[in-house]
């Protein structure tokens, strides 16, 4: 049901007390976050602090051990088992995933499809859009990320920056409520980082809801209205960009963000 009646205001993604364990290793130890429509929420923290795991729990690429997740106001239904949470209704998960446009660190474009086919794939085969409409829309988004000329190329023939922009177009084409970025620039050569950040920044400026894991501190500071600093699977500091970067409470976070001052 998507009639909007049972939706609590304008919460795009809510995570409540999330725990995630890999065997004996507890990677997330009770994390909560809340992104409203139009928010740009950055997750920062040192390597291994659990940022990717947190992001991947939101669209259930990782299954949390316990906790709650709401996407577009709808709580994901889980059965509790000895091993952790298991989704009750895989159809619900698949439906909610189409509201989350994921962009991966390593692009993960489908290598047997052209750029255009990559962008049309989910609209046609998951959202069941007519082919002509999917194509028109795909070309629109490829144009937006500056890749219209490359639409008939295969991903392996593009630069990393171009591949990542294609991946962003692919995520946009599903019409997501929220974009999820997992270190979108850290696999790129330094000279290619800028073109990708520019695309992301444009999306932020047009009011897209985004959750962004990044090591680009300056970018996080400039583009986000909310920042979360993760340490050892816990939120050590959170608040507005101003609060986290300039009115920092925690010593650890202070040391971590000091690189940009």
């Amino acid at each position: 049901m998507d009639n909007g009646l049972h939706r609590s205001s304008n919460e795009a993604v809510v995570v409540e007390n999330l725990h995630k364990q890999f065997g004996d290793l507890e990677v997330l130890r009770g994390v909560s976050l809340r992104a409203h429509e139009g928010d740009v929420l950055s997750i920062i923290g040192s390597s291994g602090s659990g940022k990717s795991t947190l992001l991947r729990c939101i669209n259930l690429l990782e299954l949390p051990t316990s906790g709650e997740i709401k996407v577009a106001g709808e709580a994901i239904l889980f059965n509790k088992t000895k091993k952790g949470l298991v989704p009750t209704d895989i159809k619900q998960v698949e439906r909610l995933r189409t509201k989350l446009g994921m962009v991966f660190q390593s692009f993960n474009l489908w290598s047997h499809m052209t750029v255009l086919q990559n962008v049309m794939e989910v609209p046609i085969h998951v959202l069941k859009l007519p082919k002509a409409e999917a194509r028109e829309q795909a070309e629109h988004f490829l144009n937006r990320v500056g890749l219209w000329e490359k639409r008939d190329q295969f991903p392996a023939f593009l630069s990393g920056g171009q591949q990542q922009r294609a991946a962003i177009a692919r995520a946009l084409a599903i019409g997501p409520r929220v974009m999820l970025f997992d270190e979108p620039t850290s696999a790129l050569d330094p000279e290619l980082v800028g073109e990708v950040l520019k695309v992301i920044k444009d999306l932020a400026n047009e009011g897209r809801t985004m959750i962004l894991v990044t090591h680009e501190m300056k970018f996080a500071r400039d583009v986000s209205n909310q920042v979360i600093f993760l340490h050892n699977g816990l939120v050590e500091e959170s608040g507005t960009s101003q609060q986290v970067f300039y009115e920092t409470q925690s010593e650890r976070c202070k040391a971590f963000v000091s690189s940009i001052h």
Binding site: N59, L61, T98, F104, N108, L109, W110, S111
Partner: peptide, 25 residues
């Protein structure tokens, strides 16, 4: 692995993933 994960992340069912991504790839 990432190409299969991408399919899942965009809401493809396991059958569609198999048919559209795993087998052709």
């Amino acid at each position: 692995r990432g190409q299969i994960e991408a399919a899942q992340a965009f809401g493809m069912s396991s059958i569609t993933t198999l048919r559209r991504v795993t087998i052709p790839a």
